[in-house]
Design a protein around this nucleic acid. Structure first.
Lengths: 140, 140
DNA sequence: TTAGTTGCAAACAGTTTGCAACGAC
DNA sequence: GTCGTTGCAAACTGTTTGCAACTAA
């Protein structure tokens, strides 16, 4: 499996020890495109690693977030969800189904950035722009 | 106090009973522009209403949210924050200070909407667009 | 008058923490 | 071999719930 090697390197490049658990968690997060919660990852990973602990998943996700390998998303009232797609993107969110999808569009990001550069926000220095589209997925 | 009359009417117009607690909570939320948490509202309101309960604040904020009087904001990992500004706006957020400010700009909303109308998102029907600017406030 | 609301305490869910055993480097 | 990491259980924090007393309409 070449892919797991890559994931291991991603972790090592972030200056972290590449333990089995960390590799498994990042691998799962990249595979599962559903922006899973810690609990969802736990249930998924337990099939393969029956002794993995929920606390380890929380701690590891926290660590990955601090290292910039992973992002936290908080859409609804409930728990944190995690995203390992590092490429710039936005989120589509359905409140009804609690489903999150990625939306890639370089132009949109550019349009907003251009506008903001022309119309500086008084007294605020922007580091990042987040956009969410709230709505409904058309289940065809 | 004419203002409190207005707030009472806001609540009544939403089809809710205008109890002392509800009026006080909405009034506080409108006055405090800091997007307070339930706990912050509780501490603020206790000065004036020593017997008010935290559970009432949570339940009321939830009720207001469902009635559209109030919006929930979840920026960082921690707890929910509430916003009673109904006019369309975006949020500026400093991760360092955990501070949230409102940002009003009708043009930006229009620009994004125009773009999205021209470039329909496949399989998704948009109800609302949320934008957050993550960065730093320039403390002068 | 009455159905809906409140305050309290207890329950709950998501997340964090302390610690001994363990494993990557 | 060392120091960081893991799994477990217990703790913690934000939020919700059940219920008897109360209150707005």
């Amino acid at each position: 499996m070449k892919k797991l090697e890559n994931i291991k390197n991603l972790i090592l490049e972030s200056g972290l020890k590449a333990t089995h658990q960390r590799i498994a968690i990042l691998d799962a997060l990249i595979k599962l495109r559903s922006h899973p919660t810690a609990e969802e990852l736990y249930n998924y990973l337990r099939k393969t690693y029956p002794t993995i602990s929920l606390a380890t998943i929380y701690n590891t996700l926290d660590l990955f977030t601090k290292s910039g390998l992973v992002r936290v998303i908080r859409m609804s009232n409930d728990c944190a969800r995690y995203d390992a797609v590092l490429q710039k993107h936005f989120h589509l969110y359905s409140q009804d189904t609690n489903e999150i999808a990625d939306y890639f569009d370089e132009n949109l990001e550019k349009i907003v950035l251009d506008y903001i550069h022309k119309n500086k926000i008084e007294g605020f220095e922007i580091k990042e722009i987040q956009i969410q589209f709230i709505g409904k997925f058309n289940n065809k």
